[in-house]
């Protein structure tokens, strides 16, 4: 048994050290073993109740978390704001404290506003897992990306990972820039100037796609929100495609066999060439499958183990 202790929440990676992260990814590997069994269920979290509280809609992430919790026999309740109290004017804090009176042991929280999971952790004094807060962080996505990359590349030490697309509005890019360097990788973020932040801690920035892709060990394309064009950040879709779409020809700039990742949902033939998404270079489906094992590992670590 490892002697390390873990933070009892996952808000971002500020409090996490490399050894803890490696250990968490190793636990995810163990959870793959459970998912490979004919009966994909173990009683490890029997008696715990987990709430998914999504103030911003997301079906895939929520299903992934809920299955992860159920496969370990936790009880799961889900709250989505669309039809609920926030529409009637209730604050985040009141909603969460109301739920807390019902004996929830851990919260999986998604909000359109950055920082709410941190506040929730203070309000509730219970484990909180950030399932995406605004443009700020989406740590389980970054963990499943890291897990998928390690599965393909082995250790990430010294590996160059290129992230391409709308970096400015991407919590996936921010969380990966925070996580991957902690595992030894070097991150280059690339996109049009209007979609790059002033700086991105953990990553270097460039507007030149070729520079980003050259020598890259893996490439991650991000979803382009088409509404960005309404705000004047992009002149036109064809112009974005001409400059930044990941195509088979452009992927050839990266190292031979460098895999392609995408956090989904994909805009086929916008940020990623449709045929490439289905090619053996693409790990998109693998990411989704790994997401469940990673989320099982996160739930296990925040709920079980010495305090």
């Amino acid at each position: 048994m490892s002697g390390a202790t873990f933070p009892k929440h996952l808000l971002d990676f500020q409090e996490w050290e490399r050894a803890q992260l490696e250990s968490l990814l190793e636990t995810a590997q163990m959870m793959q073993e459970v998912l490979a069994r004919p009966v994909k269920k173990v009683p490890a979290l029997t008696g715990f109740t987990v709430a998914t509280v999504f103030f911003e809609p997301s079906t895939r992430t929520r299903i992934s978390f809920e299955l992860a919790a159920r496969r370990m026999s936790a009880d799961v309740v889900s709250f989505t704001s669309s039809a609920s109290s926030t529409a009637k004017g209730e604050t985040y804090r009141d909603t969460l404290r109301t739920l807390d009176q019902m004996g929830i042991d851990a919260y999986i929280l998604r909000t359109d506003a950055a920082g709410v999971p941190h506040q929730a952790h203070r309000w509730l004094q219970k484990p909180v897992i950030n399932a995406g807060d605004g443009w700020r962080a989406h740590p389980t996505q970054a963990l499943l990306d890291a897990f998928t990359l390690r599965e393909k590349l082995g250790s990430l030490e010294g590996k160059k990972i290129a992230i391409v697309g709308d970096i400015l509005h991407s919590r996936v890019a921010r969380s990966n820039a925070e996580l991957l360097p902690r595992l030894g990788a070097q991150v280059v973020a690339c996109g049009p100037a209007t979609l790059l932040p002033g700086k991105l801690p953990g990553a270097s920035l460039t507007t030149k796609l070729r520079e980003a892709l050259e020598e890259a060990d893996a490439v991650m394309a991000l979803r382009l929100q088409k509404e960005r064009m309404d705000k004047g950040l992009l002149p036109s879709l064809p112009e974005y495609i001409a400059g930044y779409q990941i195509t088979e020809a452009r992927l050839a700039w990266a190292k031979p066999e460098a895999p392609l990742l995408h956090p989904g949902p994909m805009n086929r033939d916008v940020e990623i060439e449709g045929t490439l998404a289905d090619s053996p270079r693409s790990l998109v489906e693998r990411q989704v499958a790994n997401g469940q094992a990673v989320r099982m590992a996160v739930l296990y670590h925040v709920l079980v183990g010495k305090r």
């Binding site: 202790t5 073993e33 296990y300 183990g305």
Partner: peptide, 13 residues
Amino acid sequence: LTEIGLQPRVRET
């Protein structure tokens, strides 16, 4: 599990 802790060593069934 809460007593033994942190890194579960799950092996093949």
